[in-house]
């Protein structure tokens, strides 16, 4: 009983301390890393624009107007010009942000959920569960990342939903490996042994003692992964395997605009810049988060 009280008290103190430390670290990083703050603001702006797109005074992104085709930017009525079908590029970029951002966040989240679950079980339970999880990740990692995604889309059929499923499937082994490694080292630690001695069952040990330790590495991996997933979805759309016409998506805008690049480079430059800007912002933010959350980097 005494042990229980003492253990509980220490855990609370550590949690409070960790929270205070995190806020302080975030404030310090924000002061020292203006680029990360700028990236966060940019992302927030892009996400807000994408969210409120239906209520913005934008033209219909799919409305074809052949008279107005391939207009240059700053044309009256079309601030960023038009594409090969005379569709307004500003409207398509904003609506495309909805698809690209959503695809990035959802596929990274799905990969994370599957990977973290498998990683926890693979690390906590030795024996056949560990073997199955590890062999599965070995096999999936025996393929080049994008090739496997393409192969899965080949089986499921082209389309945004299938492309997202494929990217989530090829993305989860990285999380599974990362989490399994952390769980393997945690499993042998004294506090897990103590919890077990006090009669905690596996579910309680996993939920209360192991899961909180996984938060930092998983958040860092996730924040860097969303950008990679946006690039992968855009890549599949570029190959014609993701979003199907007429839906606006940055990857497919690049693919169709490619044929008109000599006449109107903006048709290709703008969606490319949009992808580049968003992924750059995500990477800057991910790096800053890693500085805050990864103690090994701080120590260096």
């Amino acid at each position: 009983m005494i042990v229980r009280v003492a253990d509980g008290g220490r855990a609370d103190a550590t949690e409070l301390g960790a929270e205070g430390r995190l806020t302080r670290s975030l404030a310090r990083v924000a002061r020292g890393n203006r680029l990360a703050v700028l990236a966060a603001l940019g992302l927030l702006a892009a996400a807000t624009l994408a969210l409120v797109a239906p209520w913005l005074p934008l033209l219909d992104p799919d409305a074809v107007d052949t008279v107005e085709r391939l207009r240059q930017p700053l044309t009256p009525g079309h601030a960023l010009g038009t594409d090969e079908f005379g569709r307004d590029l500003l409207a398509r970029l904003v609506w495309g942000a909805r698809v690209s951002l959503l695809a990035g966040v959802v596929t990274a989240a799905a990969a994370m959920l599957i990977g973290v679950t498998l990683g926890i079980f693979g690390g906590f339970y030795t024996g056949w569960i560990e073997n199955v999880v590890m062999r599965l990740t070995d096999i999936l990692m025996a393929f080049p990342y994008i090739l496997l995604a393409i192969a899965i889309v080949a089986g499921l059929g082209p389309g945004l939903r299938n492309a997202m499923i494929a990217i989530a499937i090829v993305g989860f082994p990285i999380y599974a490996r990362l989490v399994r490694g952390v769980v393997l080292s945690l499993r042998e630690r004294e506090f897990v042994e103590a919890a077990r001695a006090l009669g905690s069952d596996d579910a309680r040990i996993l939920g209360r003692h192991i899961l909180p330790h996984l938060l930092s590495p998983v958040i860092v991996a996730f924040s860097l992964d969303v950008g990679a997933k946006i690039l992968a979805t855009a890549g599949l759309s570029f190959l014609g395997l993701g979003t199907q016409p007429p839906t606006a998506d940055w990857g497919s805008m690049l693919a169709t605009g490619r044929q008109f690049v000599i006449l109107s480079p903006h048709v290709v430059l703008l969606p490319g810049l949009a992808i580049f800007g968003i992924v750059l912002a995500l990477n800057l933010l991910g790096d800053a988060l890693r500085d805050v959350l990864d103690p090994r980097i701080q120590a260096r």
């Binding site: 690039l231 890549g235 690049v261 290709v268 430059l269 490319g272 992808i275 580049f276 990477n283």
Partner: peptide, 16 residues
């Protein structure tokens, strides 16, 4: 940082 954020296919088109 740029290399990790740039879509390869876009870089290809720009270089082309």
């Amino acid at each position: 940082l740029f290399g990790a954020s740039m879509p390869t296919f876009w870089l290809g088109i720009v270089l082309m």
